[in-house]
């Protein structure tokens, strides 16, 4: 009843003005986001559609296509080395994620907890954190060159020179140890990428908590285990999810360190896609392989939506204009 009385009071002009005000409020965000929509539609959405279409064609170097139905997909399931590739990918994902997360927890606990907080050597803590940031800041091509350079043949490889100096024979690192090198280098670079995230999480621990634990007689290591590490739970979850995804889709590092070799022994699923696109120029087949990778990454994305609670991270604007 109140509502209708209210409506009667407002004449048509005010109603249109109300509606206009609401429209004005809707239009502004879209204008602000327009520059984002254009490149993303052209360079992400369109390629996704293209990929889907191409996966049903036999497109090759000439960019001409014939539709061949599900042949590409059949070929994927018929590829004899696929199980090896998948096992290798799994090894890389699990190995790198574990190594990098554990490694960066170790570095951050020492630099931020022990050096900064326990021993109050802030400058030393900062210095070592910066050292540990270096791999992440270095362009991949340089980072991987350094690794090739270190483990290169006897002429110039540092490790082999050192082995020679103590009288040991040189090793063919890139022939016999390529997967291990890949694991080591990629997890170092990825550990470097989580230093800042983890260390800022430790800094958010209120000092009073650490102080009162000390007053209660807790040792530094006990505080570290029972107070500091629980604070890292959220960043570790975040980093682990991203690391799984990152390692699953990584191809640049493999291309630069081992090139998939020797004899295809470091080819992962992502690198296999890359090879089909750029070495064998079998675009249709590559697109079909990509479809599975996209499905996997969308699944990961959906898991992240759940874990990160994206809905809750959107705050209601405190204004109606």
């Amino acid at each position: 009843m109140d509502q209708s009385a209210d409506l009667l009071l407002k004449d048509r002009a005010t109603l249109t003005a109300d509606r206009k005000a609401i429209k004005r409020k809707q239009r502004f965000p879209f204008l602000m986001m327009l520059p984002f929509f254009v490149p993303v539609i052209v360079f992400v959405v369109v390629p996704i559609i293209l990929m889907l279409v191409m996966s049903f064609t036999d497109m090759k170097f000439t960019l001409k296509w014939n539709f061949i139905g599900f042949d590409n997909y059949r070929r994927i399931f018929g590829y004899p080395d696929m199980s090896k590739i998948l096992a290798r990918t799994l090894l890389l994902v699990v190995g790198n994620t574990t190594l990098s997360v554990l490694g960066s927890i170790f570095v951050v606990v020492i630099t931020t907890y022990y050096l900064d907080i326990v021993y109050r050597r802030k400058n030393l803590g900062l210095l070592f954190r910066i050292i540990w940031l270096i791999p992440n800041l270095t362009p991949t091509i340089v980072f991987m060159f350094i690794w090739r350079f270190m483990f290169g043949p006897e002429g110039y490889g540092m490790i082999n020179k050192m082995l020679a100096a103590i009288g040991l024979p040189a090793m063919n690192w890139f022939t016999n140890w390529s997967m291990q090198l890949l694991l080591a280098s990629m997890s170092l670079s990825s550990a470097s990428g989580s230093i800042i995230l983890f260390s800022s999480a430790i800094r958010q621990i209120p000092e009073s908590i650490v102080q009162s634990a000390k007053v209660d007689g807790a040792g530094n290591f006990y505080i570290c285990r029972r107070i500091v590490l629980p604070y890292l739970r959220w960043p570790i979850t975040q980093k682990t999810l991203w690391s799984i995804l990152g390692n699953f889709t990584a191809y640049e590092s493999i291309r630069l360190l081992t090139g998939g070799g020797p004899m295809g022994s470091t080819v992962t699923y992502a690198y296999y896609i890359y090879q089909n696109a750029y070495q064998y120029h079998t675009y249709g087949y590559g697109a079909a392989l990509s479809v599975f990778m996209v499905l996997m990454s969308i699944t990961m994305g959906l898991i992240m939506l759940r874990v990160f609670q994206v809905d809750k991270q959107l705050r209601v604007p405190r204004m109606d204009i």
């Binding site: 109140d2 509502q3 209210d6 009071l9 407002k10 005000a21 405190r318 204004m319 109606d320 204009i321």
Partner: peptide
């Protein structure tokens, strides 16, 4: 002040 629009009333 007009930063919020009333849900009802005038």
């Amino acid at each position: 002040c007009g930063l919020y629009r009333p849900t009802e009333g005038s």
